[in-house]
Simulated scan of single mutants.
Amino acid sequence: MARVAKAVATFLCVVMAGVALAQDTARYRVDVTFNWTAADDLDAHWSRLIAFAHSSRYSLFRDGETASSGLALVATNGRVSVLEAELAEGRRRGRVGEHVVLPGVASPGAFSFELMLDETLSRVSFATMLAPSPDWFSGASGVQLRAEDIWRDQVTVVLWPWDAGADSGPNYTGPNVETQPRQSVRLLTHPDFLTADGLAPIGQASFTRLP
C-alpha cells in the first residue's frame, strides 16, 4: 500500500511539474497589418521586419530616447545585422530570447510570425522601415504578454509612424541628410500622416496565444 501511495505521489508531482512548465512558457502568433499608402509613390514598402522576445530589462525604442545604432540602421536603410548583433549581446545577458526576421512587403501589407516566450522573457518588440523614407519606421516596443503570472490570450496594439532621429530628409522621397548629433525617437508628425483629427495610426498588431 505504501508503494502505491508513493507511486501516486510521484505521478502527481510529475503531472504538476508538467503543468507548471506549460504555464511558464507560451507560444504566440503575431499578425501585423499596415494600411498606409503613399499618395504619389508606387514603390512604398516595408523593409524586413525584425521581431524578438525579451525581458523588462531590454527596450527597442521609447519616445524621447536616442535610437541604438541597430534600430537607426533598420529605420534608415532596412539593415538588421547590427540590431541582430545587439540582440545577441542582450541574449548573452539573459535579456533577449528568440528572434525572427521576415522579408519586406509592399505597403499596404502584412507580416505574420510566431515567437516562444517564457516567464522572464514575456515581452515582444519589432520594427520595420517605411521605405524609401529618410528614417521613418513603425513597430511595437515591449508588448507585455504575461500579467500577474497569467499569459494573455489576445492582445491588440495600434501601430504609429515613428522618426528614428537619424536622418533629416525633408519628406518621404527626399534625399538622405544624416542628422548630427542624432536626435531622439519621436512620433512622426509629417503631413503625410496627419488628418483633420490629428496623427493617424498606420496599422495594428494582434498577439494570439497558441494552444
Results as ranks from 00 to 15, higher is better:
residue 156 T to I: 09
residue 153 D to P: 08
residue 18 G to Y: 05
residue 30 V to N: 03
residue 7 A to S: 14
residue 2 A to Y: 14
residue 211 P to G: 12
residue 148 E to V: 13
residue 179 T to I: 04
residue 91 R to Y: 02
residue 210 L to N: 02
residue 209 R to V: 01
residue 97 G to H: 10
residue 51 A to T: 01
residue 106 A to H: 14
residue 17 A to G: 06
residue 158 V to R: 01
residue 36 W to H: 04
residue 2 A to G: 13
residue 137 F to L: 01
residue 31 D to S: 07
residue 190 H to S: 13
residue 83 L to R: 03
residue 86 E to C: 12
residue 21 L to Q: 07
residue 72 A to P: 00
residue 167 D to Y: 01
residue 177 V to I: 13
residue 44 A to I: 09
residue 59 S to H: 12
residue 16 M to S: 10
residue 88 A to C: 05
residue 29 R to T: 14
residue 62 R to I: 06
residue 57 R to V: 02
residue 125 S to N: 00
residue 72 A to T: 00
residue 18 G to F: 00
residue 52 F to H: 07
residue 31 D to W: 00
residue 201 P to A: 00
residue 181 P to V: 07
residue 159 L to A: 01
residue 134 P to S: 08
residue 139 G to V: 05
residue 47 S to R: 07
residue 137 F to P: 10
residue 80 V to C: 07
residue 153 D to V: 04
residue 130 L to P: 03
residue 96 V to Y: 05
residue 49 L to T: 07
residue 189 T to L: 15
residue 183 Q to H: 07
residue 10 T to G: 02
residue 158 V to N: 01
residue 75 A to V: 03
residue 197 D to R: 15
residue 4 V to P: 04
residue 85 A to K: 09
residue 9 A to M: 10
residue 189 T to A: 14
residue 128 T to Q: 04
residue 13 C to W: 00
residue 98 E to P: 09
residue 105 V to P: 02
residue 94 G to R: 13
residue 152 R to Q: 14
residue 181 P to I: 09
residue 178 E to I: 07
residue 146 R to V: 10
residue 54 H to D: 09
residue 36 W to V: 07
residue 75 A to E: 01
residue 130 L to I: 13
residue 65 E to G: 00
residue 206 S to C: 09
residue 82 V to N: 10
residue 177 V to D: 02
residue 187 L to P: 10
residue 21 L to T: 09
residue 99 H to F: 11
residue 27 R to A: 08
residue 10 T to Y: 03
residue 136 W to F: 01
residue 126 F to N: 02
residue 121 L to I: 11
residue 168 S to F: 06
residue 4 V to A: 14
residue 119 E to F: 14
residue 93 R to D: 15
residue 7 A to C: 14
residue 14 V to Q: 09
residue 196 A to F: 09
residue 177 V to E: 13
residue 183 Q to L: 12
residue 43 D to Y: 15
residue 144 Q to M: 10
residue 129 M to Q: 15
residue 114 E to T: 15
residue 84 E to V: 04
residue 161 P to I: 02
residue 191 P to A: 03
residue 83 L to Q: 08
residue 76 T to I: 03
residue 79 R to A: 12
residue 70 G to T: 01
residue 171 N to E: 06
residue 121 L to R: 09
residue 50 I to A: 11
residue 133 S to Y: 06
residue 170 P to Y: 11
residue 128 T to V: 10
residue 188 L to I: 06
residue 84 E to Y: 07
residue 80 V to S: 11
residue 151 W to R: 09
residue 189 T to F: 15
residue 200 A to R: 15
residue 160 W to P: 05
residue 1 M to C: 04
residue 201 P to I: 07
residue 193 F to M: 10
residue 142 G to I: 10
residue 33 T to V: 13
residue 203 G to F: 05
residue 97 G to V: 06
residue 70 G to D: 00
residue 123 R to Y: 12
residue 107 S to A: 15
residue 62 R to N: 14
residue 177 V to R: 11
residue 175 P to Q: 05
residue 98 E to S: 08
residue 54 H to T: 05
residue 206 S to W: 01
residue 24 D to S: 15
residue 110 A to T: 12
residue 190 H to F: 05
residue 5 A to H: 15
residue 82 V to K: 02
